[in-house]
Design a protein around this nucleic acid. Sequence first.
RNA 1: GGCCCCGUGGUCAAGAGGUUAAGACAUCGCCCUUUCACGGCGGAGACAUGGGUUCGAUUCCCGUCGGGGUCACCA
Length: 545
Amino acid sequence: MNYQDLANLVFPDVKDINYYEEKYAKRNLEDGAIVTRFAPSPTGFVHIGGLYQALVARKVAKQTNGVFFLRIEDTDQKREIENGVTGIVKSLQDFDMAPDEGQINDTEEIGSYGPYKQSLRKEIYQAYAKYLLAQGKAYLCFCTPEDLEQMRLKQETAKVRTGYYGVWATCRKLSVEEMAEKVKKGEAFIVRFKSPGREDRKIKHHDVIKGNVDFPENDQDIVIIKADGLPTYHFAHVVDDHLMRTTHVIRSDEWLSSVPLHLQLFQELGFKAPKYAHIAPIMKNDNGNKRKLSKRKDPEAAVEYYKQEGIPSDAVKEYLLNIASSSFENWRRQNPELPIEDFDLQLNKMSVSGALFDMIKLLDVSKSIISRYTAERVYEEAFKWANKYDEELKEILTDKEYALKVFGIERGNKKPRKDIAKWSDVKENIIYMYDKNIPEYPYQVINEKEDIKTILEAYKFNPSDDKQTWFDNIKKLAENLGYASEVKEFKANPGMYKAHVGDVSTVLRVALTGRTNTPDMYEIMQVLGKEKVEKRFKEAISKLN
RNA sequence: GGCCCCGUGGUCAAGAGGUUAAGACAUCGCCCUUUCACGGCGGAGACAUGGGUUCGAUUCCCGUCGGGGUCACCA
């Protein structure tokens, strides 16, 4: 009995690894093309940090004419949730980030390096586990979870490193015969990697983002095949990224400390290791403490949140790119119209430490993006959003022709308005353009009922006036009623006037819209039309009595 | 606790052995012949800390402190 016999005993039916090596041949890509992947577990909604990784991975693949694929890491069936895969695929689609290969829905996939769902690759992992086992680079372990727990306790009280290594790796000392006998007796087992590493030796590693990092070698005999026959993350990663011909593993930096293990696995399997790029997580300030954005505590951690709020996916992506690269902002300022695909992202310039998530900044980015949209685009997006999330807004927007006029106010010029940051802001911003509950808002400087009434009764709106004539008209009105027709004059001669033309305008504005802050009032009156303007003033007057 | 990474204004961040230490968001003031937004101009605001090396260190080295990550038959 030797290791080859043991391997045959344990995995009698799996294929030889040569079969897979040939089936998943080297990709035929141009020099310098980068192959990346997004490899989430279907254990919940997509996290903003996951989207960030996917964005970066996809970007570098695209800009080198490489490949970006989606792999589903579902080797832990206990944690899997219903529709997990669908959620991931849909989120990527929402952000216009569909992969070149991989899962396209719960059951289908595209690309010739699949299956892209790990639970469907069981026999592949077993083939490679068998390969290691046959060479004596892996062994069977019969320790129960309880044994392991006890061992850990012992290690803790003895204040030594925890884990399965060195003298603690009891099953490593078993002979092939002993292992075979236990298997034949039907004892449950798992497969462990026989680590050739020594903790007192260092390895040097260069991470594309983090730079040079030194670690002690890995000496842990980690599990590669679990009791259910599925691989652990570490083993699946190495086998998959080799077979799928990934060139750059772009993942969250919580994996950084596993690099020595992964490198060792690649080495022992005889594979060429990919380059690693470990991305710093997106953090949040929690009472003075930095912590990762949490799925449980922070709604903004879920990618779905941005959709619900109506923050355009472009805005989220641009904000993320802002975090990823400090040169993005400059690039954007110089190229306000170019698509983000044209921006060249450098992995090695990415920040090594985690950035605090800044919603205010995101919203600022979003405002700028929306301000560049045409009225038509604003309408389409807002309407789409309203259809899903706001019944009242949807109703308001059914009159498209009128809505386009409303959205057209101060839009399309050199200095467009920036007052919409997200579609959920829209209703609040345009509601006064509709005959729905114009709120009663307190008049400001001019607040005597009689004065207000005089102004409102005296004002005549003529829609055919151009803007200058229209405003001259208000000035004249102010002057006739004893107010300063110029603000400067008012300021120069305090005490001579009760108020100035601005205050008169405010009276009109409040009566018309129920608020003090609005876009250009001339445009508002034009869009509203003579009839509505007069009706509103009439109503405002009647409310005064 | 062991190991690893990180530490420039409130936030995101550029940067070099010698700089008036960029820029963006936020904030404050002024201007933009009606408000708000936009835009323009300006203000306030930072190299965690101690010790080296050096003519000179925020930049290089060591310690301290602080932050983060990781130590599963989870990923």
